[in-house]
Simulated scan of single mutants.
Amino acid sequence: MRRSRLEAPAATDFLRPELAARLAERFADIARPTERVLELGSTHGILRHALAAIGRLPPVLIESDLTSATLEKQGCCLVLDEERLPFKPASFDAVLSVMALHKLNDLPGALSQIRLCLRPGGFFLAALPGGDTLHELRFALAQAELASSGGAAARVHPSIDVRDMGALMQRAGFALPMADLDRIDVTYPDVLALIRDLRAMAETSLLVQAKDQPPLNRALLQATQSAYVANFGLATGRLPASFDILFVIGWQPD
Rank of each mutant, 00 (worst) to 15 (best):
F87T: 14
K88M: 13
P89F: 15
A90H: 09
F92M: 01
D93M: 00
D93Y: 02
D93G: 03
V95G: 00
V95S: 03
L96G: 01
L96A: 01
S97K: 00
S97D: 02
S97F: 05
V98S: 00
V98N: 06
V98H: 02
V98E: 02
M99H: 09
M99C: 08
M99Q: 08
A100W: 02
A100C: 09
A100M: 10
A100G: 12
H102R: 08
H102E: 15
H102Y: 14
L104A: 06
L104M: 07
N105A: 10
N105T: 04
D106G: 02
L107G: 04
G109V: 05
G109T: 07
A110R: 02
A110F: 12
L111Q: 00
S112T: 13
Q113E: 06
I114P: 03
I114V: 05
I114G: 04
L116C: 14
L116S: 05
L116M: 15
C117P: 01
L118D: 04
R119W: 07
R119C: 03
P120N: 04
G122I: 13
F123V: 01
F123H: 07
F124W: 04
F124V: 02
A126D: 04
A126R: 04
A127Y: 11
P129T: 10
P129Y: 05
G130F: 14
G131D: 05
D132G: 09
T133L: 11
T133S: 03
T133D: 06
L134H: 13
L134M: 15
L134K: 06
H135L: 12
E136P: 08
E136W: 05
L137I: 03
R138W: 08
R138M: 09
F139E: 14
F139I: 10
A140W: 02
L141S: 02
A142V: 00
Q143C: 01
Q143A: 06
A144R: 03
L146T: 02
L146G: 03
A147Y: 05
S148G: 05
S148F: 10
S148V: 08
S149I: 10
S149N: 09
S149F: 05
S149Q: 13
G150W: 00
G150T: 02
G151V: 12
G151Y: 08
G151A: 07
G151E: 13
R155G: 09
R155C: 12
V156Q: 01
V156W: 01
V156Y: 03
H157T: 03
P158V: 06
P158L: 14
I160A: 07
V162I: 13
D164C: 15
D164L: 12
D164G: 09
M165L: 07
G166W: 11
A167M: 11
A167S: 08
L168Q: 15
M169P: 01
Q170W: 14
Q170T: 11
Q170Y: 15
Q170G: 15
R171Q: 08
R171K: 14
R171F: 15
R171P: 03
A172R: 06
A172Y: 12
A172G: 04
G173K: 05
G173C: 02
G173F: 05
F174D: 01
L176D: 15
A179D: 07
A179Q: 06
D180T: 14
D182E: 11
D182R: 13
R183W: 15
V186R: 00
V186C: 00
T187H: 04
T187L: 08
P189A: 12
D190H: 06
D190E: 04
D190Q: 13
D190T: 10
